[in-house]
Amino acid sequence: MRVLSLLSADGNTEPGTARLCDVCAEVSAMSGAGIMLMADNAPLGSVCTTNEVSVLIEELQYTLGEGPCVDAHKSGRPVLEPDLADPATLRWLAFSPPALAAGTRAVFGFPLQVGAARLGAMNLYRDRPGRLSDDQHADALVMADVAAQAVLAMQANAPFDTVARELEAGANFHLVEHQASGMVATQLGISVGEALVRLRAHAFSHDLALIEVAEAVVARQLRFDPS
């Protein structure tokens, strides 16, 4: 009930996705939140993010294919990292340093699922280390459930082969990255899937975000072929 009143707090009868992520962070008393859609264990994009750090957390996971959302989605269980600077288990070797540098200390991933339908994961982060309290954990589980239901409710009325407009509003489905993949595929005579891998590798080795590399390709400032 508290969740529902927060969702409609701005008087909006159609809770948009932007509000959804804010509420995810508010309810669980975190610094920020993001909701990531995934398929076949790979991120597709984020539906919403609350601030620049959440954007980065989603972006890193999309670029690197690892992180709390990826693990939460794969395992179907919450993934809890109360101290990214001093983790109990060594994981996310590529994700952790830039996430820490951006101001993330604790990150948590909660799977979004309704029955057997697995949509992706919600991530929560906090700028200081520490475990979730029992209440926060319980609230986060409720929010993950609300978020999953909300995503499906928005998509339920969309025409076939179309992403619901409400879902697109605050979303980042990495369209520029896919455009760049098409261009690089043509430059190198490889598949678009391979091209995306090349873009990711370039981003990683040059310490750039994938989106920066993609934008340079689309702006024709960066080519992958020797010509």
């Binding site: 859609l37 998509q155 896919h178 690089v184 678009v192």
Partner: peptide
């Protein structure tokens, strides 16, 4: 609904890739 959403997202991706090509 989840399958439809994935399908729609994949269509979007394919179109963006084709635009790039």
């Amino acid at each position: 609904v989840n399958e439809q959403l994935n399908h729609a997202l994949n269509s979007r991706i394919v179109i963006e890739q084709a635009k790039g090509v």
